[in-house]
């Protein structure tokens, strides 16, 4: 009984006025703006305009400075793997590997790429093993302390075309053909740049003389590149019957090089989907629990009742 009276008295003390009066925060942007005074509205408008103007000026300055540079910046191409949840086009990767092997590998190494990385991405395990067996690896020493030659295995890395960097430079007029494993990550523009570079060899503009052994390419920094055009129509015959136009070859090898620099690409996007699902459930649950715990505090009312 005493508890009942105590509770009733407490409720009476806390009651501000009769009737339902739900206190809640109003976070509506529209109503917040509507509540602002005229002066503040003008100030906010001016501030917004100045900020937008400043951002616009910054973008314009940035664009104008970029436009004054000598080389072209590649356009963004609609790669099939561009989407947040899109995987590689694996048929394209397979063709791209063929282009690398038959064209690029003559000069460029991919020393961080192992044949095992081709399994279940470009080839089946048996196909990848056969592919690896095509190379000869010097291994050893054997029981007699001698080095020996053996066919490649899945754990072997792609062979380099030159014995060392100096040999590579000597064979290419002093220009070192870069390793291609991370070439997509190591260039601004990524695979867009690689595709643009491969498909944009042309004659130099009037008045520009190219030194011997250099070729004009507007996408290359400075315009003069030591690598001659290597991608032509039908320079490779695709096993799957795809028309080997120069742009198709360039597209496929660019996609393959993207894969080489990010072999985990498909796996991480798959993980992203799982993460979104998992975190969404977790967030909703914990957020609801937080709201539940805070509800009494958020809806409480403190009333000052002066003594009469």
């Amino acid at each position: 009984m005493a508890a009942l009276i105590g509770r009733a008295t407490g409720q009476a003390l806390l009651r501000a006025q009769n009737g339902l009066f739900v206190q809640q925060a109003n976070l509506s942007f529209k109503e917040t703006i509507a509540r602002l005074s005229r002066g503040k509205k003008i100030a906010a408008g001016v501030l917004g305009t100045v900020t937008a103007g400043a951002i616009g000026l910054g973008v314009a300055l940035q664009a104008s400075v970029l436009a004054s540079e000598l080389e072209l910046h590649p356009p963004a191409y609609p790669w099939t793997h561009n989407g947040a949840f899109s995987s590689f086009d694996h048929a394209s990767l397979r063709r791209g590997y063929q282009v690398y092997k038959e064209v690029c590998a003559a000069c460029h190494s991919m020393k961080y790429m192992a044949y095992r990385e081709l399994v279940n991405t470009i080839f089946t395990e048996d196909e990848a093993k056969k592919e690896a067996e095509q190379i000869t690896v010097i291994d050893g020493p054997d029981d007699e302390g001698k080095m020996f030659e053996r066919p490649g295995k899945l754990s072997d890395y792609f062979p380099s075309p030159y014995a060392n960097d100096e040999a590579a430079k000597a064979a290419n007029n002093g220009a070192y053909p870069p390793d291609l494993t991370y070439i997509v990550s190591a260039r601004h523009g990524g695979e867009d740049y690689i595709f643009s570079l491969l498909t944009s060899y042309c004659d130099p503009p009037a008045g520009i003389e190219m030194r011997e052994g250099l070729y004009f390419n507007p996408y290359f920094n400075g315009g003069a590149i030591a690598m001659a055009q290597s991608i032509f129509n039908e320079v490779v015959t695709y096993d799957d019957g795809t028309n080997p136009s120069a742009s198709q070859l360039a597209k496929d090898v660019s996609a393959f090089l993207k894969f080489a620099s990010e072999p985990e690409h498909d796996e991480r996007k798959r993980m992203a989907m799982k993460a979104i699902l998992g975190f969404s459930v977790l967030f909703v649950t914990v957020y609801y629990y937080k709201r539940h715990k805070w509800a009494s505090l958020k809806s409480r009312k403190i009333v000052f009742r002066p003594k009469k």
Binding site: M271, I276, F283, V286, Y287, K290, K293, W294
Partner: peptide
Amino acid sequence: YYSVKDIVGFIVLLMALILFCLL
């Protein structure tokens, strides 16, 4: 009160960071 509020923050940050790392 604040422990649960901080946990909400942890989840938001981890979600943002992990998705950034994955995408």
